[in-house]
Nucleic acid binder design. Sequence first.
DNA 1: CTGAAAGCGCTTACAG
DNA 2: CTGAAAGCGCTTACAG
Lengths: 355, 355
Amino acid sequence: LSTIYDVARAAGVSPKTVSRVLNDEGPVNDQTRSAVRAAMRRLGYVPSRSARSLRSQRSGLIGLITGAISITEDQPTGLPDMLIVQGVQRVLSEHRMTLMVADTGGDMARVPDLVRTFLEHRVEALCIVAEYHQEIALEIAAGGIPVLLVNCFGGANTPAIVPDDALGGYLLTKGLIERGHRRIGVLTLPRAALARRLRLGGYRRALSEAGIAYDPALVAVGMDADPARPIAPLPMALQGLLALAERPTVICCGNDFAAMHAYALLAEWRIKVPKDISIAGYDDYRLVAELLRPPLTSVDLPYLAMGRRAGDVLIQLIEGTLKPEDIGKEAIAGRVIWRESVKPNRTSRAVATGN
Amino acid sequence: LSTIYDVARAAGVSPKTVSRVLNDEGPVNDQTRSAVRAAMRRLGYVPSRSARSLRSQRSGLIGLITGAISITEDQPTGLPDMLIVQGVQRVLSEHRMTLMVADTGGDMARVPDLVRTFLEHRVEALCIVAEYHQEIALEIAAGGIPVLLVNCFGGANTPAIVPDDALGGYLLTKGLIERGHRRIGVLTLPRAALARRLRLGGYRRALSEAGIAYDPALVAVGMDADPARPIAPLPMALQGLLALAERPTVICCGNDFAAMHAYALLAEWRIKVPKDISIAGYDDYRLVAELLRPPLTSVDLPYLAMGRRAGDVLIQLIEGTLKPEDIGKEAIAGRVIWRESVKPNRTSRAVATGN
DNA sequence: CTGAAAGCGCTTACAG
DNA sequence: CTGAAAGCGCTTACAG
């Protein structure tokens, strides 16, 4: 492999001039520049990042840790959080930064080792991406470089980018109310899920703003935290909602897979969507939401936008334009994607009056 | 940040001795070693990969390019090929190699740039992972380092690891025949898909080994190559199979999502799985296959195993234990995962005789 | 078992 | 607009 010295000799200039051409830096005579470029091409010169990093003390590297790649054989996941990684990557590449991605393989105990490897590479910042919205205890010993949490947040004032689940629950419920629904059933995520609590908060706020009383009978846990049987509680919970004296006119599911199973159960029970009952999902996992019949109304989990914002923040943290405390916990909004699984409810007023 | 010199001074030894401790290399007195280790800990020493790579001319890096992270907003995918990446990563980390992952963002034109960045980092080998089994034209200018293709293959004798689709189609069909099925319908992947041709080859081999005549009426294209409407042809094609004078007793779908939609259509038409007809998928995408009711028989697409094998091969190519031409195109077998969507067919013999 | 010297391929800091 | 010298933090090659 040729070096800057080989190129310099071939072009009849000094190594420093080659360096200048390489970095588009300082004033270089146009002819000199062309000569250097030609020599580079001729020799197949590829600069060495190691040498550059070593001397300049800037690696141009950012480390990202995720559990996303960590589908183990025992725990399949949908990997939607890869979208976060993609968002980060896009922004960073625009800033000529290289993203190093490492996964925990589902084992958080590996994090310190991964961080260590990143530090050996002298990454300029660290980004931790969680598989679902959660609080993490993890104290990252990052040796003074900026750390950004995405889809999770920590106790300290580590900056964090999270989805705005409260807003999602609010917007969905508000939209349903605007479409005439007043008896709005909910099959939630597992009881312990943070997103469950936040979305229910949004649900209640929308109800209250519309002057609709909150009825706990309309809310049931629809999913289990055990990844081996995520939808175990769904059939009973759905049956429970349908058996209510005043049956809901729409049911919001914890995610699109849960909605998919609700579809299957309803089909079995000869209940038509959306004629007999409307259904909504969450996540806007389009492989499911768009392909279901009827297509599923769902709330966009704004992973790509979160990733992009994370990329921006990382760059600014490195440049010092932004201080960690300027960020805090930042919630990113997602939109409701209205599809045919939700039908306006004409009779709602009568039903609601009967309440 | 402290250097090897700081550690050396703190431990009262020479830098070279610190280096030896760092690399578990050469003979070092136990007491000296402890002293050095203590000094490292005290100073929070983290070795610099740049310096090491530069001097030793070994980066310990392997570059992997995938389109996997490339869900664009317009093209959702299931990302199962992330399993390949995970398999590679696991093996490499056991060999103290670091994987650099870059994605094309769905745009193959970015590949040369990504390769260039990898070369600047002096990766010791390159791994290209495709989203689905395909032949690629791509000539990678990798500057002499080993290149391994995974889930794809090239014209030249670049080593490649692919799934054994022919075997998958064969094993599924053979298993169905063993379970008494003789009229075996197929809703294939898009016409242009390589996996379609390979799996149909396996299907026909199994039929022929069992002395069952191939009936082209039983095979229909069930999916479209347009990612915006992948299952567009499915309803008509499924209807066609069901309308046959001798209706198939089982239908094999191109993938698990297609099977999911077949379930929905059959439910609509009041046809019960597996009582009235058996269904099989492909990919063993467990989030779907295990959660469908009834759980779906599917053929494991051995992505994790392919990734592991790819990791092994990469290591051996780097070490020189293996020459590129020793590999060629290597097909990795997947198993059939039998679940309740397939029911043994008792009446098959009568039906078959009637044929 | 340990160390002194040189050099990997760049960029920095300075000079002209 | 261009260059000579030094040094980033390690490992190599050699010596003792």
